[in-house]
Amino acid sequence: MIVLLAAAVIFPFFAGRYMMSIGVSVLLMAALGQSWNIMSGYAGQFSFGHAAFFGVGAYTSSILYVDYGVSPWIGMLLGMGAAALLGVLIGFLSFRYHLRGDFFALVTLAFAEILRVLFNNSAALKGAEGVLIPYRDVWQEFQFRDDRIFYLILLLMVIAITAFIGVISRRKFGVCLIAIKESQGVAQSLGVPVLKYKLAAMAVSGAAAAMAGTFYAQYYGFIDPGTVFTSSISVEAIVPCIIGGSGTLSGPLLGALIIVPLQELSNSLFEDVHGLNMVIYGVLIVVFIMFCRDGIYGALVKRQKGVET
């Protein structure tokens, strides 16, 4: 873990432009994955709509910045707040009506889609043209000429989310979330405030995804509904957890570290075969679901425990 961290910190000082962009992609997926991990991996509420939170984060900071001159740092915090509220709203509605499993996933998906359509068609929200972030190179406005600083900031975000998960997993909140995932009914009988905890998990998870959303907007300088609210963002939040191991601390990090380079590799190897990289993506999902349900990290942990007992 420490070696990995050290490598991640040193990385930008050795990497070229191309490698840097891959590094950012890895971290972005890791951040999304970890945010999903809180709500779905730990609390067991399966989200298929993390794009909703990501997009709300990206749009809140961007519109506030472009139209009102609010620093994206502040916009990021406001976006996180907005996404947390959205999470609580989705959660409250769903849990009030006892939605679970597939139906809960469908509700989260529907919310993301509604937001996409809404942003696509509302002039006040910049419509389908999206938002172009003007480049100013002022750190107070979350802009840097040096990509390495962007990278390190994102690394810091990933570390923050991971540390948060690490801390809660040893405390009441995290232990109770796992209890809720495994059996909500039993958790209730033991006095766990199930609704409150699930909503809290959704709020934190939404806020974390929104943070990644703001980063995305500032780093790439352009967002539109088709990129930040699309279901492929939601899938990008899920896949690293599946590959690495959901409900584990380092699983999603490992997952992101494997998938992104693999994608890049297949992209460059089979440049002219349109779609092959996505076929590989699909095969990867299928193979892991079928043969390695706990993910790589989960399988490792299980093997270790198996040896001990």
């Binding site: 232990v175 109770c176 796992i178 209890a179 995932k181 495994e182 039993v186 009988s189 006095g191 766990v192």
Partner: peptide, 23 residues
Amino acid sequence: TFQIVRPFGLLSVLDNAAVGGYN
């Protein structure tokens, strides 16, 4: 307790009981 046993399988034995202890 429940008719069908449902331990929190992912948690350790101690953590299982601690969920109750936090009450």
